[in-house]
Design a protein around this nucleic acid. Structure first.
Lengths: 241, 241
DNA sequence: AGGTGTGAAGGTGTTCACAGCC
DNA sequence: GGCTGTGAACACCTTCACACCT
């Protein structure tokens, strides 16, 4: 979608699956197959009409609708989200900012006036909100989610570091910022391990030029097979000590 | 890992793959197979020693190390990240907060003093930082990333709404907050579509009780097969108008 | 000639089911 | 008897390759 939008902005009229795939960094066959699930929107010998394709995909993804959302918990994170430009650009409209702190009520954040939690139900109903964003502290999250759901919200984006328990039919997506860092740290560790291994081995490996994006299981497979000793001071399968 | 930590806090000594799988919401066979890649850390007839398993997985994931990180761009989002408790809890230490605005320099955020971009290289080198977090506006992100990388950073968590281009060997993870909302909106749209379809069909479907977590391609497959008409006012494959 | 749409081949990831150990 | 560790079966996803359309 990003690649398509870029083409659209450059007023490119049509793309072949090959060109678009290259721009998006994927395989052209995959792209064609994916598009085929939406329908036959291409023209053989020509390619896909960019504008038409943008429209079809947008609609399929629900981006042609305008989704009102509320943000509950206007601390640093809530304020950051309220100011985040990406939302309005993608069809989301921040209908209200809600905080439990009476001192926050009435304060202007991102050009809106913060409202108090007391009015949560009213706000949701009046604006027909079905998506709520929780940016409260962990302790408040579960309770907030219950009130949101009771008022009619059926999708929740949860930034609080808690697992919410919600009734069936309600979607929750949890954003855990530290998990992203953990993933980076994991790869960082592997980089260090590979360097060390390479240095120790002294270059006896075959094509050891640039093992950039290694994947986990296969790498340690054979090592794991042999080392079945047990729980005493042994070495991790995927990374040499 | 979350499920394990919870057990550890409740001082549960051992778990079977079955119990842990239920707690984590996954299949027990998958869990055993995944663990087997790390080694044979379980005891047949008994299960896994919780503490030992926590340690092994932590080490494998690189969580036993202390990772210094810098946050560049101390606006709302940067401040929110600096205050985010989850980082220190998972072995990350915020080594410095950096902002380009001279007015920010010296200001206290999350108990630290914000430093100016001029000192970026010095800070990175002195603290041995290999992971950087970019929370600047889109326009500054690419340049910041280049300075970070030149100074020795090899992993970047990018919150700015831009695609960074970086040399090989550098990992970038992009967090796009609006994508999460888009995913919720997509499911939300499908919920609405299903309701409408159910209402229209009047209950003639077979087991139409609760099609909670539907997946995309299969659903619209047969419909897509028949509708090959072409680009005039037709209906999306996966969602009835 | 150029490029889509798609059956078929090829991979990868998941689950089953059971031998083997405690 | 209970539970792990793992080959084998299975399901799903990706890629190939080519018939068919413009």
């Amino acid at each position: 979608m990003r690649a398509l939008t870029a083409l659209s902005e450059r007023s490119v009229p049509t793309v072949s699956s090959e060109e678009l795939a290259a721009a998006a960094g994927v395989n052209s066959a995959k792209l064609r197959k994916d598009f085929s699930y939406l329908g036959s929107y291409g023209t053989r010998g020509v390619g896909y009409d960019v504008e038409y394709l943008v429209y079809q995909i947008s609609r399929e993804l629900g981006l042609t609708q305008d989704w009102p959302v509320v943000i509950v918990g206007i601390g640093n994170l809530g304020a950051a989200l309220a100011n985040y430009g990406g939302f309005s650009a993608r069809g989301f409209r921040v209908a209200a900012l809600i905080d439990a702190d009476p001192a926050m009520a009435g304060k202007p954040v991102a050009g809106m006036s913060v409202q108090h939690t007391d009015d949560l139900e009213k706000i949701i109903e009046e604006n027909g909100v079905s998506i709520g964003v929780i940016a409260t502290p962990a302790g408040a999250a579960q309770q907030v989610s219950e009130r949101l759901i009771a008022a009619g919200v059926t999708s929740i984006l949860n930034f609080a570091p808690t697992v919410l328990s919600v009734p069936e039919g309600v979607d929750v997506r949890k954003v855990d910022l530290s998990i992203e860092l953990q993933i980076l740290a994991f790869h960082e560790q592997r980089k260090a391990g590979e360097e060390a291994a390479a240095a120790a081995a002294g270059g006896s490996s075959v094509g050891g030029a640039a093992p950039a994006a290694a994947v986990v299981p296969p790498a340690g497979r054979s090592a794991a097979e042999t080392r079945k000793g047990g729980p005493e001071g042994d070495v991790p399968a995927v990374m040499p000590a």
